[in-house]
């Protein structure tokens, strides 16, 4: 499994991650980020891409 952490002190809800991994990251009706804390290993490339494009570099991806 892959563990996903978003530092909500850094996150400014730009939603760039949503485009790379919509299965895990979404903007809700208030334009705030919501995400799942775990994802299957085969999503690694998408999740790394999501972490890469985060303007605030708030996303940490860890392979358990």
């Amino acid at each position: 499994m892959i563990k996903i952490d978003v530092d909500m002190n850094k996150c400014q809800h730009y939603g760039q991650c949503v485009f790379e991994a919509p299965e895990v990251f979404q903007l809700n009706a208030d334009d705030k980020l919501e995400y799942q804390a775990q994802a299957p290993d085969e999503m690694l490339a998408d999740l790394e891409a999501a972490a890469d494009v985060c303007p605030m570099q708030a996303i940490t991806i860890t392979q358990a």
């Binding site: 809800h13 939603g15 903007l27 334009d31």
Partner: peptide, 8 residues
Amino acid sequence: IGMRSLVQ
């Protein structure tokens, strides 16, 4: 300015 879902 704001309105991120729409911009996205």
